[in-house]
Amino acid sequence: MKPCIVWQTDFGLSWGAVASMVGVCKQVDPELECIDITHEIEAYNILAASREIIYVEPFWPKGTVFVSVVDPGVGTDRRACVAKLHDGNYIVTPDNGTLTHLYYEVGIDEVREIDETVNRYHGTEAVSVFHGRDLFAYTAAKLASGKISFEGVGPAYPVEEIVRFDRDVIEAQVDGSDIKAIVGSVSDPFGSIAFNIKSSDFAKAGYAQGDMVHVILKKDGETYFEQDVLYEKSFGFVEKGAPILFNSSTNYIELGLNMGSFRDTYQVKEGRSYTAELSRA
């Protein structure tokens, strides 16, 4: 059985971009299966692309070919690449920061720059604005179908040259039981917000389910939420509308409201401007 192509973009589905990518893959090999992660990543948000892929990648079998296209530098001299991950999966993407979470949390064994002279969809040479179709989908399909090996992608370059965000963006600062973090994601459809705090690090800091945690949230240094919050297994341990800390399905710490949207109630967004301080209550 051939590996699936699993992909994400910031293209949306209101026009034909994604369908044209599927078409290119099917021309390479009609048997290839293309599975969507999401096409609703915020436009140009490379950090969100990095975060989204790490939520999904560990749950797919060895050999899966991932494609991530959030590419504000399309057509420039930024590298188009394929990375071979430590767990045996691959990702086809612009090398623009999208590989950050995978680099730190999964590990990248090797990375190769796509050779456009052999791995570009024929007839698109005059187009510079749709590498998602012309380079990434086409190369992913050739790799997944076995028409090229990983070595056939193009020349290797040092893994250390991969473009990455600063580590503090994806990893909270832990000092004993005091934790400083940022809001790493607000994409939970139920409106919970995820911090860049791994559940395992929260446990190492001494927190256990049933504890009360003092939570301070700030936007650009101004406090908008300060409260003692229960850390528990799931929403049903607090009353409707009450806040709760819990381990997300992706093993990060999230803050939500039981049957409510924390994100919408407090107008929270992700990124360095939205900080969190957690300590013992």
Rank of each mutant, 00 (worst) to 15 (best):
M1K: 02
K2Y: 14
Q8M: 12
L13P: 00
L13V: 05
V18E: 14
V24G: 07
D29P: 04
E31L: 05
L32T: 03
D36R: 09
T38Q: 10
H39R: 08
I41T: 05
I53V: 15
I54R: 03
V56F: 05
P61A: 05
F66A: 12
S68F: 07
S68P: 03
D71P: 14
D71G: 12
P72K: 01
P72H: 01
R78A: 02
A83G: 03
G88M: 11
N89K: 14
I91M: 06
I91R: 07
T93C: 03
T93Y: 04
N96G: 10
N96D: 14
T98V: 12
T100E: 09
T100Q: 10
V106L: 11
G107P: 11
I108V: 09
I108W: 02
V111A: 04
I114W: 08
D115H: 07
E116L: 15
E116K: 14
E116T: 11
R120D: 01
H122C: 13
T124W: 12
T124F: 08
E125V: 15
A126H: 09
V127S: 06
V127L: 06
R133M: 10
L135G: 08
F136Q: 08
F136H: 09
A137L: 08
Y138T: 11
A140M: 01
K142H: 09
K142Y: 02
K147L: 15
E151N: 05
V153R: 10
G154F: 11
A156H: 09
Y157G: 07
I162K: 08
V169F: 02
E171L: 09
A172V: 08
G176E: 07
D178T: 14
D178E: 15
I179F: 12
K180A: 15
I182F: 07
I182H: 13
V186T: 15
F195V: 01
K204E: 11
G206V: 01
G210V: 03
D211W: 09
D211A: 07
V213C: 00
V213F: 01
H214W: 13
K219V: 06
G221Q: 14
Y224E: 06
Y224Q: 10
L230W: 05
G236S: 07
E239W: 03
A242H: 13
P243T: 06
L245D: 11
N247P: 10
S248Y: 10
Y252F: 15
I253A: 04
F262W: 12
K269R: 11
E270H: 14
E270Q: 13
S273Q: 15
Y274R: 04
R280D: 01
